[in-house]
Design a protein around this nucleic acid. Structure first.
Length: 258
DNA sequence: GACTGGCCTGCAGACGTTGA
DNA sequence: TCAACGTCTGCAGGCCAGTC
């Protein structure tokens, strides 16, 4: 791992190198502690740690000013986990807000590809209520997903078919007609949504999605949602769990098909 | 390069809410 | 009751990536 390539002449670690080393040590300790406590590291937390760690590594010896700017921002998943902070947005965000210093482009694919959500969503208050559960899949939010006048979350058809449809009771639950579902965030907050197939083309979550993305302050491109579907053991009704994580990505990841 | 399939965006109509 | 306004729903078509 190369912390700094800009100051090779000095044998004495620079301030930035020391700081980076300390930060990495802290992350390592945090990861170890969390692992010991929960047996398995929460993937969201793991993703946040990985994200921030990578940011630090990438930034290397960039000016302290920029780092302070980052520290002041709230784009870590850990922060979201602990206390979701909805961010007021203009009615129609014509220009992308650039409140944070831009990181070097890439890492997007890295985060996107290496993140592995848990098979069972660790939702507060749903212990013992999650019955048959789908495989999770992830989606990068588009501008239309977070438009207040749209109120819908479109989902990749292949993911829906692969992960969600196997859970449906085809006789009683027809996405073409719409299925009312309870949707939970990771804090256990409940949202009424409808799972639908529009014109045999697009699978969407509607109705309560607007409340969800407003409450969580979700932003196009930067926020990724992980979606699970499960049957509530008490009600036998279909439910969704949606978690979000924010990555330092400012443009859509090119679609990969298949 | 043409074709195909799927995702995303823009927009129009339906629907719901509010106030006169 | 009705008009005005805002929100929600659904679809058409453009765009893009994969395949041949």
């Amino acid at each position: 791992m190369e912390l700094s390539s800009t100051e090779p002449s000095s044998s004495e670690p620079s301030y930035d190198e020391k700081e980076a080393a300390e930060v990495l040590l802290c992350f390592k300790q945090a990861e170890d502690l969390l692992y010991l406590k929960h047996k398995k590291l929460d993937p969201l937390i793991a993703a946040a740690l990985e994200e921030t760690k990578s940011n630090k590594i990438r930034q290397g010896t960039k000016s302290k000013k920029i780092r302070q700017g980052l520290a002041g921002s709230n784009h870590g998943v850990l922060g979201q986990q602990a206390k979701p902070q909805p961010q007021p947005r203009p009615e129609k965000p014509a220009a992308k807000p650039q409140l944070r210093p831009r990181l070097e482009k890439p890492a997007a694919d890295t985060f996107f590809d290496t993140y592995e959500p848990p098979e069972i969503p660790p939702v507060v208050g749903l212990d013992g209520l999650i019955g048959k559960c789908s495989k999770p899949f992830e989606k990068q939010l588009t501008s239309s997903d977070v438009r207040p006048d749209q109120s819908r979350l479109t989902m990749n058809k292949a993911d829906v078919v692969r992960c969600l449809l196997p859970l449906l009771n085809r006789e009683e639950e027809n996405p073409c007609q719409g299925i009312k579902v309870k949707t939970y965030d990771m804090q256990g907050n409940e949202y009424d949504m409808a799972f639908k197939l529009w014109a045999s083309k697009v699978y969407v979550l509607t109705t309560g999605w607007k409340n969800f993305f407003i409450k969580h302050g979700l932003i196009e491109n930067e926020d990724f949602v992980t979606i699970w579907m499960f049957r509530n053991l008490q009600t036998n009704k279909l439910c969704f769990v949606i978690s979000s994580r924010r990555l330092p990505i400012y443009e859509p990841i090119k679609r990969r098909r298949g």
